[in-house]
Design a protein around this nucleic acid. Structure first.
Lengths: 244, 244
DNA sequence: GATTGTCAAGAGCACTGCTCACAAATAGGT
DNA sequence: ACCTATTTGTGAGCAGTGCTCTTGACAATC
């Protein structure tokens, strides 16, 4: 069926496919605008349709449901954040792990500040009843992958302390707890280091979430200068935890 | 007007006032049930009215609007969490700051696990358009107050290192950033310590949020034993940051 | 016993996600 | 060029939402 269409060069992609693609993008753009303006909560299918000048029911030709639209937006947001972190990290000299770590942290915060509602779309309250489909896990781990790579790499370069920790019940339990992530991480890196890395990772998002959700109000002075100074002091703390 | 009512002893509180109080509590209870079942997002005034067997419009005699109800629920949640943390901390010997810190962390996590939706009500995505009224700030800081007290107290007991940090531009900026919280905190405690304390505080909520929103899926083994082992390892890290 | 303030109910407005039957546009094969 | 099958758009409609306003009933006060 497609064989002939492809052969017919000029209409390799049909007008329909092109239109479909165009409208699909327009729907997503309108949705992103709406989310940026007032959050995912108030994302309205009808409002998108109005914006695009089409019947409210027509939207459902492009996205099966509101949830499906949301899923697509979530994946895109993860990708956008991942791209931002990756490109910021890539700009730093390879032999400066501390600098690369700093770059990732600042990239995450910058992206979050510039896209608050998209940030909360992925790191905010989980939507009740909404089960994250499998497609979201890949993009979701881009930032984490970056940090794990950094952790492993800098661990290889570090002189082995060969400090075999005493096998207490606690360390054994931690070892079992880390089993799932172990599947994808070098065995060179110790349980303690891996756990520290994860902890710093969640601390990063805790810090960003606190700033974005206004929990720092009346605690840290408003304004980018102060907020950034405090964030920098936090990064120093995390670097110390990772002994960098 | 009330003068006579009060004088009439037996009916100091009228039947009306009592009924009103009873229904008010019933509305709140139904609302909490609904939130526990499916989150704040899907809290419905009509559903509450149905539950209580009254007309949908009658609810508005008790709460001016959905937002007003939400505000009351938020305050109650902050109080509930604060109470949980306080009573857990109070059970630990006064001369064991590390133990008291651990108790607070575990209390926060336990409360969050037992009241996930209420947790996200206060530490999740801020509701767009919803401005937290002034009444919420008091209860909101109960856990933080507890930790700051601990920080100050244990700092007094610690031998002064009198390490006057070099006054770099960064330390000066951090000092300015911390101005708001300084208003309510002893000057004995240094900027660096205060910032570390805050950072650990947000890390705690970052860790709890990560666990509750499923970000640890495929990372840390499911089940309370593993989750708790990982959480304990995080507490150890935070204790180290605070040099306890 | 009359008055006054309070409360519940019902109807209604404007909105939401979503479905369905139908009409228009476009595709492919003859 | 024609015919048929698929795809896209439409409008009506269902069931739900928060919220308002009027109306009638009742309890508390005088």
């Amino acid at each position: 069926m497609w064989k002939y269409a492809v052969m017919a060069m000029t209409k390799a992609v049909s007008i329909r496919a092109m239109n479909r693609e165009r409208i699909n993008e327009a729907v997503l753009a309108a949705a992103r605008d709406q989310i940026a303006a007032s959050g995912a909560n108030s994302l309205s299918m009808r409002a998108i349709a109005r914006e695009l000048g089409m019947a409210s029911s027509a939207i459902y030709r492009y996205f099966e449901s509101r949830d499906a639209l949301l899923t697509k937006l979530i994946i895109d947001s993860y990708d956008s954040l991942g791209r931002a972190a990756e490109s910021a990290e890539a700009r730093i000299s390879r032999d400066d792990p501390g600098g690369r770590f700093r770059a990732i942290c600042h990239a995450v915060r910058r992206w979050a500040l510039a896209n608050r509602h998209e940030y909360f779309l992925i790191y905010g309250t989980p939507v009740p009843g909404y089960q994250a489909p499998q497609d979201t896990v890949g993009p979701a781990t881009r930032v984490a992958d970056l940090m794990i790579a950094l952790l492993v790499e800098s661990d290889m370069a570090r002189p082995r302390l060969s400090q075999s920790v005493a096998a207490t019940p606690a360390t054994a339990a931690l070892h079992r707890a880390l089993a799932p992530i172990r599947a994808g991480v070098s065995n060179e890196i110790s349980d303690a280091e891996l756990a520290s890395g994860l902890s710093v990772f969640s601390a990063l998002f805790g810090a960003v979430s606190f700033e974005l959700s206004g929990q720092l109000h009346n605690v840290i002075k408003d304004g980018e200068a102060s907020r950034r100074a405090y964030f920098d002091s936090q990064i120093d703390g995390w670097l110390a935890v990772l002994s960098w």
